[in-house]
Structure formats: C-alpha cells, structure tokens
Design a binder for these strands. Sequence first.
DNA 1: CAAAATACGTTATATTGTAACAATTATGAA
DNA 2: TTCATAATTGTTACAATATAACGTATTTTG
Lengths: 160, 160
Amino acid sequence: MTNPYHPHNHRHCIEDALQEARSLCKDKGARLTPLREKVLELVWQSHSPIGAYDILAELGRLEERSAQPPTVYRALDFLMEHGLIHRLSSLNAFIGCSHPSEQHNSCFLICEKCHVAQEIEHPSIDASLKDCAQSQGFKIIDSSIELTGLCPNCVGANQE
Amino acid sequence: MTNPYHPHNHRHCIEDALQEARSLCKDKGARLTPLREKVLELVWQSHSPIGAYDILAELGRLEERSAQPPTVYRALDFLMEHGLIHRLSSLNAFIGCSHPSEQHNSCFLICEKCHVAQEIEHPSIDASLKDCAQSQGFKIIDSSIELTGLCPNCVGANQE
DNA sequence: CAAAATACGTTATATTGTAACAATTATGAA
DNA sequence: TTCATAATTGTTACAATATAACGTATTTTG
Ligand SMILES: [Zn+2]
Ligand SMILES: [Zn+2]
Ligand SMILES: [Zn+2]
Ligand SMILES: [Zn+2]
C-alpha cells in the first residue's frame, strides 16, 4: 500500500481504487454508475478529505450543467454504503477507503498541517475498544475514531 | 460516579457538575458567567448529547428576549476550552464532561436507542492509540472517539 | 476614575445536509 | 420487443448547523 506521506504517482492510487471499486460492485451487483464513479474519483483526487460542496464545485467545473447537492450526497451515500469511502465527522468531509474489500472499523490519523488523512488498522485498538465496550455491556454497531495531530512529514517541520 | 443507565436523582449530577465547574474556573481564573453556567446546566439536563439549537430554544423558553446563535456557541466554546463539556462530532451535539478536572482523551459510547452517551476511560485504549500513532511517527494533538451502538439497557430490549 | 480587556447583543450570512417530487434511465417479465 | 417496474438522477426548495463582523455593555486593572 502506498504511503500517502511520501511523494508517489498518485494516478496509481486513483486507478487502483477505481479498479477495485468496479470489481467489488460487480461482485455485489451494485451499480457503479458514471456519476458515482466520477464522485469516487474526485474523492480520491488526494489523500486529504474533501467536502461534499468541494466535490460539487469540481463537478461543476467539469460538466456544463452544474449538479445540485442531492446529486452529490446520493453518490456519497452509495459509496459509503458499499464501503468505498468513509466520512470523517470531525471534518464534515469524505475520504477514499484504503481497503474496501476487507470488513473493518476505520481509524484515521489526520494531519492538521498538510491535511493528509491516513487510515490505519491496528488490531490492538479494535481489541481494546471491544474489550472496554464489552465490560460495560455495550454492543458496538459503528465507530468513528479520528485522531488529529501532526503527521511524520510535518511533525519535524518548523511552524512558519 | 453515577451510572447514567440506571435511574438516579439527576439533580445531583447537575449540582455536582456545576459545583465542580465553579471550583475549576475559580482555580484557573476563568469567568464562569451566569450565561455560561446556564448553558452548562442545560447541557447537563440529561445524559444525552444536546444540540446547540436545542440549547438556544431552552434559553428562549426561559428568558423573555431570546438569545441568538453566537451567544450559545460562544458559551459552548468557553465550556469546551475549559474541558467542562465535549462536542460529539458524529452527532453535532454537546455533552457534559464526567471528569473535567483530569486531563484525558474523551471516548464515548453512544446508544442509538435511548441516546445516552457514556464517557468511558480505559487506559488500554489510550495506550493502544498512542502506540499505534507512535509507530507511524504521528503526534496526536486531539482525538475524537465515538462508538455508536446499544447500551446495556437497550441491548436486551426487543426492537418495537 | 480612565483605559483596556473581556463578554454579550445583534444582524447578516456561510456551510452542510435533506425533503419532496418530477424526469429519466435501466431492468426484467410477458 | 414492449410494457411495467424499479432504480437513478434532476430540480426546487428548505432545514440544520455554525460563523463573521461590528456595536454595546460589563469587568478588570492601573
Ligand atoms: Zn496517492
Ligand atoms: Zn502532515
Ligand atoms: Zn444523571
Ligand atoms: Zn440505550
């Protein structure tokens, strides 16, 4: 998996994500329409979360007739339902899922400076959360784990 | 600490929270004005998160001249700055902090059915998050950990 | 007291997200 | 194919959450 903090040919990230999405949707009989695919591509345009209205603006730049909010939100809903993107509630923004084919609870490290959000997977986090919830008799249905701070690239850099 | 899922005299929760807030603010030289205290009291009116506009409505019911959004948001900002309340970004809502005098990362169990949100603290969660971030070279500044599901009270109850 | 800082009031507006219904397109059975 | 149905998208209007900007009042400090 590509490290989002290092320079890399990001077209590969996009192409891989689109390819995997097509494959997953085909398997599930879900219709990844051109609009939905376009929105997914825009979400993947960087490793930073993007807002719904930014996606809307990008769509507007591309098409002659500009789309309306429900169009974008519906596409985002579809993509979330099928695990292709995640919503970061602390930012009201969306980001591509780095491993949509595996069932997982998402956990993000969000850099305050460069805005890269890395999805991490660490069994110990899942385990400790599950333990803790279980000890309270709480049944987890969904989780939102978002850690904000400084990524390895930015933690050393002097604040300007 | 009172268990929010069990029936209890909630006035005690409110009074304790207000008392501790007064004491903490006094120590820090922070001004817990009547307005800020009133908002804190409204946040503590239950163990469920409350939205800013619900607080606004409550204020409107109580005072003759109804307050405006900035008034409420400023009070909420103050209360957050001093660790007296937390914001649950997955709900766009606010809840009283159960242990404002201790430095901590908040972690919430939010019941989808009864809407009670319990703040939990478990060293193993903090440890695993810190470990995980550290292994990536990421410096955590703030965390938002919100687990949604069914609380012990509701997990057994039949869905109506 | 006067000056400065802080808090609050007020108006307007930005940002994010949905409800409702119409038009279109894809799907699948007859 | 052809019609009926379901799914998707378009469109309008609006709800819900949050903030900018500026003026007024209050508190603090010298
Ligand atoms: Zn990339
Ligand atoms: Zn960074
Ligand atoms: Zn209580
Ligand atoms: Zn419950």
